[in-house]
Design a protein around this nucleic acid. Structure first.
Lengths: 333, 333
DNA sequence: TTGAAAGCGCTAACAA
DNA sequence: TTGTTAGCGCTTTCAA
C-alpha cells in the first residue's frame, strides 16, 4: 500500500487554491464559495484523493472511531449487539474497533494505564464487561467517554434491562404453572466481576420467596452459559436426591443443552421437566423454548446512539436506558 | 478525553535524553544502551506515557491495524471466523477494524475509490465478500494487501475449502443411504456476486450425475441461508408433486428450519425425509443434524496469520490454503 | 550509542 | 471568502 499517494497539497495545487480551502471544501465546512467547493470536489475526485486519517486525527485530535469491547465475539448475544452498534456507526461514517477480552489477562491489559483504546478511538462501548467502581471513577475523571451495556455505573451512560425483574418473571411463570421444586442453571460470568448472573439469581430467589417457596441451594447449578455446561448442570440436577420439576436457565444456550439432556434420558418438556430460558436466541422459537426475550438489536442501537452522543455533543448528559423484556411462552413450559 | 496528555517530549525531558532515544528505547529498537533503555522505560511508566497512535502512524506510514469485512456479523459463521482472526491479531497487538457490507450499497461505497479501509489499516481480510476480477486486479496493482476467505483469486492469498467436493460428499452420503430423489436448499449469496452457493450447487449436481441420478430443477429451492428460509423452502419441496426423500441444505441454519418444518408436519428425520446440512453449527450436534463440518476457528486463524504475513514481510508470497471438511453423520440421515 | 532536525498530511487559528 | 502558518506527536535519516 505504498505507491505515490495524492495529498491535500496535490489537490490544492491542481485546483489553484490553498490547502486550507481544500480542507474546508471537502469537509463541508462553511465559508467556502459554492463554485470553489465544486471545483475542489471535482479535482479531488479526478485525482482519487482520499484524506489521510492519521494526519487528520493527529491534527484534529479526534479519531472518528469507536471501540467496542466484548467478552467474546462468537456468541449470539454479543455479535448481535455489535451488529446493532455497527449499523448506527456506519450511518455516520464512524469506524468500529473491536476488542475481545475473554480472559482476565486480556481484561487487565486492556484496561491497564488509560486503556488500550485510549487515543485509538474517541469513545468506548463496553458490553457485559465488568468495570469496578474505582476503575470507573478513574476513567471518568481522566475524561474517558464510555457507554456500558449491562453494567450500569453512575459515571457513564448505560443501556441495560431489569435483570432482577426479568429473572423473577421467568421464575414466576414456572410457579404459575404449578411447580414448587424449581431449579436454576446459573453461570459464572464470562467477564470476571460481572454482576448480571448474580442479579438474575437474586431475582430467581426473590420470586421463590415471594411465592412462599423455599430457596434450596442444591437446586442451583452452574452451567457456565454454554450449551455443554447447561447439559451437565441439568444432568447434575436430575441426578440429585430430589430433582426439580422445572428449571430456569439464565441463557437460552444453557437451556438448549438442558433440553438435549432431558431428551437423551427419554424424558420430555414440559411433562417431566419444564424449562424456561433467557435471551430469545435465534433458535429458541424453533426449539419451542419458552424464554425471556431481550431485544438485542435495540440494545446495540441504543448503545450506538449513546456513544455517538458522548463524542458529538459537548457534555452530553449521562443517561441510563432500560430496555423492555418480554415473556415468550412456548412449548417447554 | 482531553486532559493534558504526556508526550514523548515530556518523557525525553524527564529522562534527560532526546526524543529519538525515547522512541528507540520504547520500541525495542537496537542501538540503545541497556541502562538508557531502562531509565526511559522507568520514566515512561512513571508518567503513564502512551504513544499517540495517530502521530506514529502518520510518521511511520503504518497503522498497526487490520480491517475485516464480512457480509453481516450476527451470523454464527461470520462471528466465529472474526473471533479466530481477532485472536491471532491480539497476540501481536494489531487492532481490528470491523466492517459489515450487508447490502449492495454498503459494498459499493466500501470499495469505492481505494476502499474505505485505505490508510485506516495496513491490510484487509474479506470474508465471503465477492471481489470481481477487475476490482481484484485494480486493488492488487494499487498495492492493496488483502486476504480473502472463501473467494480465491490469483492476486491475493486466500483461505478456503473445497466447496465442490464438500457438497458432493454431502450429496453422496444421501445417495449411499439409498435415496434417489434428493432435494437441495440453496441460497442467494449474502454478498452479491459471491460464488460459493453456485459451486456447492454444482457439487450437488455432480454427485447426482455421477450416481446416474437425474438432476431435477424442481428439487432445487432457495432458502436464503436463513432458518425461516430453510423452513419455507422445505415446505415448498414437500408440497411439490413429487417430494424428495432426502435434502441437502447448504447451511445448517437452513437445515434447522427444514427440520422444524418436517416436524411441524408430523413427519420425522430420517424416516420420512433425511436431512444433511453444511457448517457444523454450534447447535448441530444437539439437533442431531448430519452435516459437513468446516473448521471455522481454523479458518479465522489461518486468515489472521496470512494477513499478518502480508504486512510483516516484504513481499510475502501469495498462498492459497484449503482447509479440510469432514462428514459428520448424526441422526437426521 | 545518541541527538538534531526534517518531515508525515492534515487542521485551525489568525490575517488578509 | 481565502490564504498563511504554526503546530499535532511521532519516526527516521544523517551526523556527531
Amino acid at each position: 500500500m505504498n505507491q505515490h499517494t495524492v495529498t491535500i497539497e496535490d489537490v490544492a495545487a491542481a485546483a489553484g487554491v490553498s490547502v486550507a480551502t481544500v480542507s474546508r471544501a471537502l469537509r463541508d465546512l462553511p465559508n467556502v464559495a459554492p463554485s470553489t467547493r465544486e471545483k475542489v470536489r471535482a479535482v479531488a475526485a479526478e485525482l482519487s484523493y482520499v484524506s489521510n486519517p492519521s494526519a487528520s486525527r493527529l491534527a484534529a485530535g479526534r479519531t472518528g472511531t469507536v471501540a467496542v469491547v466484548v467478552p467474546v465475539f462468537d456468541a449470539w448475544y454479543f455479535s448481535s449487539v455489535v451488529a446493532g452498534i455497527e449499523a448506527v456507526l456506519k450511518a455516520v461514517n464512524v469506524d468500529l474497533l473491536l476488542y475481545a477480552v475473554g480472559n482476565e489477562a486480556d481484561r487487565v491489559s486492556f484496561f491497564a494505564g488509560r486503556g488500550a483504546w485510549w487515543q485509538r478511538s474517541d469513545a468506548l462501548v463496553m458490553v457485559d464487561v465488568a468495570l469496578g467502581e474505582e476503575s470507573a471513577q478513574r476513567l471518568a475523571s481522566s475524561g474517558a467517554r464510555i457507554v456500558t451495556v449491562s453494567g450500569e455505573t453512575e459515571h457513564f451512560s448505560s443501556v441495560s434491562l431489569d435483570e432482577h425483574a426479568a429473572a423473577a418473571t421467568a421464575t414466576q411463570h414456572l410457579i404459575d404453572r404449578g411447580h414448587t421444586r424449581i431449579g436454576v442453571l446459573t453461570g459464572e460470568s464470562l467477564s470476571a466481576g460481572f454482576r448480571v448472573p448474580l442479579v438474575r439469581l437474586e431475582g430467581f430467589r426473590h420470586a421463590l420467596r415471594t411465592a412462599g417457596l423455599e430457596v434450596d441451594p442444591s437446586l442451583e447449578c452452574s452451567g457456565n452459559f454454554s450449551m455443554e455446561g447447561g447439559a451437565e448442570a441439568m444432568a447434575a440436577l436430575l441426578d440429585g436426591p430430589n430433582p426439580p420439576t422445572a428449571v430456569f436457565a439464565m441463557s437460552d444456550e444453557m437451556a438448549f443443552g438442558a433440553i438435549a439432556e432431558v431428551r437423551s434420558r427419554g424424558l420430555a418438556s414440559p411433562q417431566d421437566v419444564a424449562i424456561i430460558g433467557f435471551d430469545d436466541h435465534q433458535m429458541a422459537e424453533l426449539m419451542g423454548l419458552s424464554t425471556i426475550r431481550q431485544p438485542v438489536e435495540t440494545v446495540g442501537e441504543l448503545a450506538g446512539k449513546a456513544v455517538l452522543a458522548t463524542i458529538q455533543k459537548t457534555a452530553a448528559p449521562i443517561s441510563h436506558q432500560i430496555v423492555e423484556t418480554q415473556l415468550m411462552v412456548r412449548s417447554t413450559t
